[in-house]
């Protein structure tokens, strides 16, 4: 019971931090919409053209704008020693990374979902494609949170090169993009693609707490 209380307290703090840093999320959303406008201005306003490339563009921009915020994943807690205090409170680094991933998914990625219906309007997407986009983004964003945790914890080890973290996320999210966008055009049945995405998310959910914890330990030793 006490342990569950600790986890609850952890989430409460993350939620409060999310409220105080809500401007960050709004900036990301602004970045997302501005990029969409730039794409539309650059490509011209042909109905058919935008409809065919819409899902691909929305997905790539979602990916890019979600890499903007990952640098903050552990950095502040690492610098002021909260990671050590939480660890000494009885939560292992692995569990901490898992909780961070879940809270990033809930408090950063899920609020981002509200942009999808609006963005779909700009590309004149049919309703069933919006549903698919919604579903793939829910699964895909969990994968992005896991990747974000790995790259942010690796970034703790170097204090100069910040773009390397985004490169890792972009590199490993290629399969996510392939399957998420591929659902629309593929001849295979819809559920097999969703299952593949779910499989990828399970693999990353399994791997990332351990690798993040290892990186955090290493970073604390080299601080």
């Amino acid at each position: 019971m006490l342990f569950i209380n600790k986890i609850f307290i952890f989430f409460k703090r993350e939620l409060k931090l999310f409220y105080t840093n809500i401007v960050d999320l709004l900036t990301n959303i602004l970045f997302f919409f501005l990029s969409i406008f730039i794409f539309i201005f650059a490509l011209g306003t042909g109905d058919k053209l935008l409809e065919t490339i819409g899902v691909g563009i929305i997905w790539s921009l979602l990916l890019l704008s979600s890499t903007l915020s990952i640098r903050k994943f552990y950095e502040e807690d690492f610098k002021n020693g909260t990671l050590i205090v939480v660890h000494m409170g009885g939560i292992s680094y692995e569990l901490m990374a898992f909780l961070k991933i879940v809270s990033h998914f809930l408090f950063v990625q899920i609020p981002f979902l509200i942009t999808i219906p609006v963005a779909s309007m700009f590309f004149n997407l049919p309703m069933n494609e919006v549903y698919v986009l919604f579903l793939t983004f829910v699964i895909g964003s969990l994968i992005l949170s896991c990747l974000g945790s790995i790259s942010a914890s690796m970034n703790l080890l170097n204090s100069t090169n910040f773009s390397i973290g985004s490169i890792i996320v972009l590199l490993f999210s290629i399969p996510v993009i392939i399957f998420s966008v591929g659902i629309k055009n593929s001849d295979v049945d819809f559920f097999s693609m969703i299952n593949l995405l779910l499989g990828i998310s399970l693999v990353f959910l399994g791997i990332s707490p351990w690798s993040s914890a290892a990186c955090i330990r290493l970073a604390l030793r080299n601080k």
Partner: peptide, 27 residues
């Protein structure tokens, strides 16, 4: 209890929020 040389309080939260967080962690 380990008190580090730098402060482990979260800058963007209030004093009471920080205290409640630490209190919950140490049950």
């Amino acid at each position: 209890t380990f008190i580090m040389d730098q402060s482990s309080a979260t800058k963007h939260l209030t004093v009471l929020d920080n205290i409640n967080f630490w209190r919950g962690l140490s049950s």
